[in-house]
């Protein structure tokens, strides 16, 4: 699980071009959207594509995204349960 969280942080920094943010600055429970990392709706689309491409998870209900993408902790837990890759 720890390795998966680390991997997610690396991917998020890379995919979303968060050049100024270092791995250690993202805490597992930090909010990804809003006040935390400040991600927006375009980033949400990027994360949905990343889940599909890298973990074989297709999000069919957009409402699920709100819960899954709450933090690194919630993302990692969802991927661990649902990954097909």
């Amino acid at each position: 699980m720890e390795a998966l969280k680390q991997e997610l942080k690396e991917k998020i920094i890379d995919v979303l071009n968060l050049e100024d943010i270092k791995l250690e600055e993202i805490n597992d429970n930090d909010a990804l959207f809003g006040d935390g990392l400040g991600l927006d709706s375009i980033d949400a689309l990027e994360l949905i594509v990343m889940l599909d491409k890298d973990y074989g998870i297709k999000l069919v209900d957009p409402k699920e995204g709100k819960v899954i993408f709450k933090s690194i902790e919630t993302m990692a837990a969802y991927i661990k349960e649902n990954r097909a890759k």
Partner: peptide, 10 residues
């Protein structure tokens, strides 16, 4: 690369 899948918006 992704065979016309997984296209990101940015």
């Amino acid at each position: 690369d992704n065979k016309e899948e997984f296209l990101t918006p940015t």
